[in-house]
Design a protein around this nucleic acid. Structure first.
Lengths: 136, 136
DNA sequence: CGGTATCCCTAAGGATACTG
DNA sequence: CAGTATCCTTAGGGATACCG
């Protein structure tokens, strides 16, 4: 068999790295940070929601996008989908342990930004006000 | 005129809330979590970068998108752009104090997901394997 | 090197309608 | 209520070319 000179699969990166295209962590990272997923996770961090309640909570999302988003998050093992077959039907969405951890870091980020609205607002004004800053 | 029944500006939410469309924090949140911004911030969390170095670090980004992304982040007061007029020119990008804090939370998120690749991979397989799970 | 400007195309995403 | 299906518009984003 091959002795010690065997380098372990040059084409196949073994380290997991969000910077690497094709790494699962990068895919998961993009799923989580996608436009609606981050807000949906944030909302579910407050507790479980039914579809339309979640839709109202996440201001501006369409049925289609919320549905797609939840499917992606369920596939990644961050969200559970619990169907209660009553009339009318109920479907409860909640976070898995992993989803809970992810939601917590997103909460940190949201808190940070909510606490920095003034700074961001000021920075934007300064940027837009300076020559060539804005396109009217 | 209207006496005490005047509710304070129903159209204008005064609380800052990432869930509210039109709130600056929501805009900042979307900027930060946008496809390339999060990776750029992550990279700049490692130290300052020049344009093309950053472009190489963020695997897959085009010149155009990196440029646009950096402008948005600079406008939000998270990234500084330092032009050194030599020949050839050099432009150094770095994080502001706010950008540093944001990058830190994104680092937490990335670490969490990098540490969960196996869980995510398993969840995906399970999801795709079950009837109606995947579209071949 | 570090961009901006232009062209062009795909796919994200909204609105509406219909089903279990 | 909780979605899928369809249609249609927009804009995200790549490729290329060119300027400071």
């Amino acid at each position: 068999m091959s002795p010690s000179d065997l380098s372990p699969d040059p084409e196949q990166e073994l380290v997991t790295d969000v910077f690497a295209r094709g790494c699962t962590s990068r895919a998961a990272f993009e799923d989580v940070t996608s436009k609606w997923a981050s807000l949906a996770l944030l909302a579910l961090g407050e507790g479980s929601y039914r579809f339309n309640a979640l839709r109202r909570r996440v201001d501006g999302v369409s049925e289609k996008m919320l549905s797609q988003t939840l499917q992606a998050l369920e596939r990644d093992g961050m969200v559970t989908r619990d169907v209660v077959t009553t009339i009318p039907p109920r479907v409860e969405y909640a976070l898995t342990p992993l989803g809970l951890k992810v939601a917590a870091t997103l909460r940190d980020l949201a808190d940070l930004l909510e606490g920095s609205v003034d700074d961001v607002g000021a920075a934007r004004e300064a940027y837009d006000e300076r020559p060539g800053g804005k396109r009217p």
